[in-house]
Design a binder for these strands. Structure first.
Length: 550
RNA sequence: GGCCCAUUGGUCAAGCGGUUAAGACACCGCCCUUUCACGGCGGUAACGGGAGUUCGAUUCUCCCAUGGGUCACCA
């Protein structure tokens, strides 16, 4: 059998058979409906939010079914490899609460019984399967040069026929093994192609997200082993996911169009095919049109963006969960105290079309979550963030720990806490008035509606005279303020004010507003009583004076 | 261009042949209120178009349009 001879010449070092590997990697002892899923990035060093999205879906499907979620590194394109990328991937995923039960752990080590989990170290495995295919006449060496391929392609496009290496255009497909051997011995470079058996018939397929679909079967003689001896994505995918026992492949929908190739590969290799769930791409609105979130153009495509902005990680995850299953929101509403891990992700409830990434919604999700944190928790997360991204604020925060914790605790422990912050980078703007070094430099002073700067100054001029710092409670302080307001001609009763507007200078909120502005330059701050306590009597009086002299 | 996928308000989306077409975010009002908030109530706003099938289509079929993806010795 000459094809056997050909196979032996091409892969002379390969001695094992596919069956050896199939025997080696036994089926896992898992529950019947357990999913084995994976995250399989190429180590390019860029962590895309879409990667978290896909990994989250995979991890949830595995964990919720008591299955296995593993990490496989797809480093078959060695040109694109970036140093440290594996560690970075694992660290990033871990930070986002996504951990692997098996797979690559460092550049050199892995855990699990289905390794290696790095494709470059699985070369012999792929070659074993490729060799077997050649032996059977289902794959063949192709000696076409890139130039020839290019020329073929151009002429096909010109003639308006489907471009590619297939059928009658696949000139080396029927080269007899003897001739092939001769060329190899002459040292002519080659790659290995699949001898596609596709006849262009339509095949039906069920995707777990997209549902029923159909397409013509593959007829392209795709490359399975590249000139460097490593497999292409398609070939590696089929071999690996079969051997590693993957039951469910969740991947971006950009892969949907190569599904026919994968289906044929599994069939020809006689390997068990996993189920597929092609997840929609996260999009972004540009002008009026949607487009894929772009690594180059969109800062928010990088996972690091969320770190820099200071979104607590759980917020990003919950936002993503929102996109994955829109009923997550209802579930969250009804289960405020539960961990998101308890939510049952369902693939069939996932939207089939690409969602627009909505930062405004993320902010809302985030504000809600942060509002439920305690002041101490917020402080801890804030300084953790500030330490890296805002050292100046970090120093200040550390120095004023008690005050800041008090500030973050305002209105906490109530059924409906304030929703002041969506991300840590917003904190500075909302707390800087606690610190003179910032406050004194501020030039912009907001004013309450209907109150002029002069009126505000008048109010403060009087208020500083009677200001008492040592009130025991917010209520006591406010009653005092109320009394003061009435004395200087402001009204403390809304209805009364509405009916007799002309009798008063304004409402009590104008007075409180003036105090607020004098103390903070802002019309929107949390409870003043606490702020004054944090500032201390001396500083409060100082600020009144400064304000009057503005 | 071929093939594939998608198409309900500004955004995310329920809906699975008969609904006043949910809900959330955003926006706008009003109310509550001892400041700021929180909250409550309400409002604007949608089934891409055309043919069928049907007593009846947002829901089923086909065509078109639009958007997206893919057509590498990259994944």
């Amino acid at each position: 059998m000459t094809s056997e001879k050909l196979a032996n010449i091409i892969f002379k070092d390969i001695t094992k058979t596919p069956q050896d590997y199939i025997n080696q990697y036994k089926k896992r002892a898992l529950k019947e409906n357990a999913h084995v899923t994976r995250y399989a990035p190429s180590p390019t060093g860029f962590q895309h939010i879409g990667g978290i999205f896909a990994a989250l879906v995979s991890e949830r499907m595995a964990s919720l079914s008591d299955g296995v979620f593993f990490l496989r590194i797809e480093d078959t394109d060695q040109k694109r490899e970036v140093e440290g990328a594996i560690k970075d991937t694992i660290d990033t995923m871990h930070k986002y609460g996504i951990d692997f039960s098996e797979g690559q752990e460092t550049d050199t080590d892995y855990k699990g019984n289905y390794g290696p989990y790095k494709q470059s170290e699985r070369k012999e495995i792929y070659q074993t399967f490729a060799k077997d295919l050649i032996r059977q006449g289902k794959a063949y060496p192709c000696f076409a040069t890139p130039e020839e391929l290019e020329a073929l392609r151009n002429s096909q496009i010109e003639q308006k026929i489907t471009p590619g290496y297939y059928g009658e255009y696949a000139t080396y497909r029927n080269l007899n093994p003897e001739e092939a051997i001769k060329k190899i011995e002459e040292g002519i470079p080659y790659i290995i192609r699949l001898k596609s058996q596709g006849k262009g018939e339509r095949i039906n397929f069920v995707d777990l997200i997209k549902g029923e679909t159909s397409f013509p079967e593959n007829n392209q003689d795709i490359v399975i082993i590249k000139q460097d001896g490593l497999p292409t994505y398609h070939f590696a995918h089929a071999v690996d996911d079969a051997l590693m026992g993957t039951t469910l492949v969740t991947r971006g929908e950009e892969w949907l169009s190569s599904l026919p190739i994968h289906i044929e590969l599994f069939k020809i290799l006689e390997l068990k095919r996993p189920e597929y769930a092609h997840i929609p791409t996260i999009m972004k609105l540009e002008g009026k049109s949607k487009r894929k979130l772009s690594k180059r153009k969109d800062a928010e495509s990088a996972v690091t963006y969320y770190d820099e902005e200071g979104y607590p990680i759980v917020c990003v995850i919950e936002y993503l969960l929102n996109i994955i299953n829109s009923n997550f929101e209802t579930w969250r509403e009804e289960n405020k105290d539960k961990d998101y891990h308890e939510f049952q992700v369902a693939l069939n409830k996932m939207s089939k079309s690409g969602a627009l990434f909505d930062i405004v919604k993320l902010d809302d999700v985030s504000r809600e979550i942060i509002s439920r944190m305690s002041g101490d928790e917020m402080f801890a997360l804030y300084i953790e963030w500030a330490k890296i991204y805002d050292p100046q604020m970090y120093e200040l925060a550390i120095k004023n720990e008690a005050g800041l914790k008090k500030f973050f605790s305002i209105d906490k422990n109530t059924a409906k806490p304030r929703k002041d912050f969506a991300k840590w980078s917003e904190v500075k703007e909302k707390i800087v008035y606690l610190f003179d070094e910032f406050f004194d430099k501020e030039t912009n002073i907001e004013l309450p509606k209907g109150v002029t700067l002069e009126q505000a100054k008048e109010i403060i001029k009087e208020y500083q005279k009677i200001y008492v710092h040592s009130h025991n409670s917010q209520e006591e302080w406010f009653n005092h303020l109320k009394e003061f307001a009435i004395n200087i001609g402001y009204c403390a009763n809304k209805k009364e004010f509405k009916n007799n507007t002309e009798k008063y200078k304004g409402m009590i909120q104008d007075v409180a507003g003036a105090v607020r502005v004098a103390l903070t330059h802002r019309t929107n701050t949390p409870d003043l009583f606490v702020i004054m306590q944090i500032l201390g009597e001396q500083k409060v009086l100082e600020r009144f004076t400064k304000f009057i002299n503005k």
